[in-house]
Design a protein around this nucleic acid. Structure first.
Lengths: 226, 226
DNA sequence: GGGTATTTTTAGCTTCGTCTAATAATATCT
DNA sequence: AGATATTATTAGACGAAGCTAAAAATACCC
């Protein structure tokens, strides 16, 4: 029973779980502790919630084995991601928020807006393809553009690249990068990539050098320039 | 104990109770059933919640005697009302919502936005004094402009009046009035006021007559024109 | 002023999402 | 493979916010 549960308003914490599984699992599956850490919640809470989510047909879950999204779960998650990214764009472009502040506000708003609101907002913004961090915005039809870039940490020295996306939500990190102009659209020359610790040295168009530690270099996505 | 509870994020239902008491009590007090009806909740739930609200210092409540807001409760309620009315204005002016649809969406959003969001929105909208229904928007400092108009039902025949406010949240009612152009700013000539059932007959600038039933006439606020 | 009606409260249960402590399963290491 | 370490799950409890049904207080009516 309970398979054709109509799309009644999901509680906001259900949405958070769905998004977490989506972000963590990719095409594989997410573990209980990964989800617990991401949501700042006890592992036991995750176990219980995954049971309910499976019951609701939003998640595929096997004890001790992790969880992945069903088609319905993925659709729900992407709906939330679309809202989140459109809201971030709005906050930055129309409300004068700074790059590092949009995430937190969007996190709350995404659970309160309707589909109607979302589509009108998309219209107002001119149907942007990417949010302020360069993340692709899923379409209203649930289609998400494939990522066509790769982490800066995997670039080869000597090449020019363009930043397409900063895959990090922590405000201090964003503030740091923002100050240095390392934002989507910026072109950089890769000077050195150190294998072991993954530190990357780049130089921007004005000849200023930046040193980016391993984790940081992995959260900056770039595309090769000719 | 527990008197100096810092302004931690109020749960959204607490906010709903506060707003309900504010709207129903005016300067007096609101009864359990009134609140229950307004919130579509059982009276017993209201009794329990009023206890908690009093505990939190937001409400003054005496068993069997109704509730009224404390200063802190009033401040909270007005903060919510400010958000609500600014959001309604935004939905109408920037997102193309219709008059009758703004309320429902704002009702959800008002619980999710931050003060920062609210003030930036106010800025974007040019610090409006009134929302799309003509309701005054409380200031960021918690000051609410006094109502300087009166219900159309209390007008005297033969005078010209200007609509200042439509004090009604029901979508069908708003749609009806909107179609007829009976919206804030519109001038009307009062033709006849029937005492018993309160039906009011008015004529607009184009000479079109409108008949407004008692309850309706009482929710339309007007100011006398010279 | 007494009896009925209405309103309010109390008592006890339910669901949701969370927690901690204890137990069980899986992984890892030598 | 066996011992240990890590990760997950179960069990049991809690607070919030709601409900119903029964009891108590207040209001209304004649």
């Amino acid at each position: 029973m309970g398979e054709f549960v109509a799309a009644q308003p999901l509680s906001s914490s259900i949405g958070d779980y769905l998004k977490a599984v989506w972000e963590l699992a990719g095409s594989g599956s997410a573990s209980t502790t990964e989800i617990a850490t991401r949501l700042s919640v006890a592992p036991a809470s995750v176990t219980k919630m995954l049971g309910r989510l499976q019951e609701a047909g939003l998640v595929r879950y096997e004890r001790y084995r992790g969880a992945s999204l069903t088609e319905r779960g993925r659709a729900e998650a992407l709906r939330l991601v679309r809202r989140h990214r459109l809201i971030e764009t709005f906050l930055l472009e129309h409300l004068g928020y700074s790059w590092q502040d949009v995430h937190e506000e969007a996190e709350r708003l995404e659970h309160a807006v309707s589909d109607n609101f979302t589509e009108r907002l998309a219209e107002l913004l001119g149907h942007p393809a990417r949010d302020p961090h360069g993340a692709p915005i899923p379409g209203a039809d649930g289609v998400l553009a494939a990522e066509d870039s790769f982490p800066l940490g995997e670039a080869t020295a000597g090449r020019w690249v363009r930043v397409t996306r900063v895959h990090n939500e922590e405000a201090p990190v964003l503030a740091y990068l923002g100050e240095r102009g390392i934002v989507p659209g910026r072109s950089l020359e890769v000077k050195e990539v150190r294998g072991l610790d993954g530190v990357v040295t780049v130089e921007d168009e004005e000849g200023v050098s930046h040193f980016l530690g391993g984790p940081l270099a992995c959260s900056i996505f770039v595309r090769l320039l000719p």
